[in-house]
Amino acid sequence: MSTTEIDRQWTTRLRQRATGKLPPEKLLPDTQPTYVASWIYVFGVATLAALIMVIVTGCILAIRGPLWWHGSVYGHFVNSLHLWSVEIFFFTMIVHLWGKFFMAAWRGGRTLTWMTGVVTFLASIATAFTGYASQTNFDSQWITTQAKDGINATGAGAYFNVLNLGQMLMWHIVLLPLAAVVLTALHVLLVRVKGVVPPFAEKVEVHS
C-alpha cells in the first residue's frame, strides 16, 4: 500500500482528526487556569460522580431484580442508594447549570457544550420519570395512572404507554441511560476540546 493510500484510509483520517482536536495533554491536562480555583467549577465533576453512582447501583438492582429490592434489607439499601444518588445528581446538576448560566459559559464557540448539557438534562428527567414508573409498587401505580392522561393528551401515548411496565422498564434501564451516558461523555469531551471558558473581563475605570 502506498503512503497516499494509507493517508486516505478512514482509520488514518479519523485518528488524525481525533488526536488533532484532542491531543492527550488536552484530554487529561495537568494544570488549569487560576480562575478555575472556585467551588462553582466542582459541580460538573460532582454531577459526574453522582451519575457514576447511579449507574453502578442501577446495575446491582438489575442483577438482583424487584423481589430482592422490595424484600430484603440489603436490597432496600441499594435501592435507597440509587434514589439518593439521583437526588444528588439533579441537585448538583442544577447548581452546575446555574453556574454556567451566570458565567454565560456558551461564549467562545461553546454552544455545543451548553446544548449537550441541555439535552442531557432533558434525557435525565425522562430517565427519572421512567424510573418512578418502574418501581413496581403503589407509588408507581399512582404516578403512571396520573401521568397517562397527560401523555395521552399529547398523542404520544400510542408509542410511549406509561401503563406498559415492560416498555417503561426498558426505557429506564436501556435506552435513556444509554442516551444520558453518551451525551455526558460528549459534553465532557467538548469541555476538554474547548478548554474552560475565561471569566468576563473586569471593568477598568479610566480616570482622565
Binding site: 472556585s38 467551588w39 462553582i40 441537585f91 447548581v95 453556574g99
Partner: peptide, 22 residues
C-alpha cells in the same frame, strides 16, 4: 426546601474561599 438548599449551595460555591487559591 430543596430549592432553597440549592440556592444556598450556589451562593456558598461562589462565596466560599477555595483552598489553595491566592
Amino acid at each position: 426546601i430543596i430549592i432553597l438548599l440549592m440556592i444556598a449551595t450556589f451562593l456558598a460555591a461562589i462565596l466560599a474561599p477555595f483552598p489553595g487559591r491566592k
